[in-house]
């Protein structure tokens, strides 16, 4: 069934026009069509949270959206946070506290936390655990991630 769909989408501030097969998942569109491989693909059915991106500022599972659905919208991926030379304070805090080992879950956790910390500048440990409850990490046991979020909250709201 040949049927393509033309979309315009802004990703990390850059506008893109592409023609896609409608069954292309947003996660695959970002990785294969745009080469933005920072968004990781884990379970591909909405459980693990690794593919979380911001759609118009809200965290969503990019594996549960089809590319045509983001036509006319704005996406932020982990590549939009900071650069190697100029990390986002959240990324800096993850590095500082050793909040990642293999790093597979990290992009999804960072994109989940970015809007969360803007709305909740001083979360308690319990609130942080709730905030990342939609993101699985199999390395850290979460403790260092909690530490990172606390540190980031301090640094971002001194």
């Amino acid at each position: 069934m040949e049927n393509t769909f033309a979309i315009s989408v802004t990703v990390n501030g850059t506008p893109y026009q592409r023609s896609v097969d409608p069954r292309t998942l947003l996660s695959d569109f970002l990785r294969y069509d745009l080469g933005l491989t920072g968004t990781h693909v884990g379970c591909e059915h909405g459980v693990c949270g690794a593919c979380t991106v911001l759609l118009d500022g809200e965290p969503v599972r990019s594996c549960l959206l089809f590319a045509p659905q983001v036509d006319g919208h704005e996406i932020l991926t982990v590549e939009g946070l900071g650069t190697l030379d100029d990390l986002h304070p959240l990324q800096e805090a993850f590095r500082e506290t050793h909040a990642l080992q293999c790093g597979f879950c990290t992009p999804g956790i960072l994109t989940t936390l970015l809007p969360y910390l803007e709305e909740n500048p001083n979360p308690t440990e319990e609130e942080i655990r709730e905030a990342i409850s939609g993101n699985l990490c199999r390395c850290t046991g979460y403790q260092h991630i909690i530490d990172a979020v606390k540190l980031a909250a301090e640094n971002m709201n001194p």
Partner: peptide
């Protein structure tokens, strides 16, 4: 591609 092909409206 994970899902089978479909026509999208």
């Amino acid at each position: 591609m994970k899902p089978a092909p479909f026509k999208y409206y």
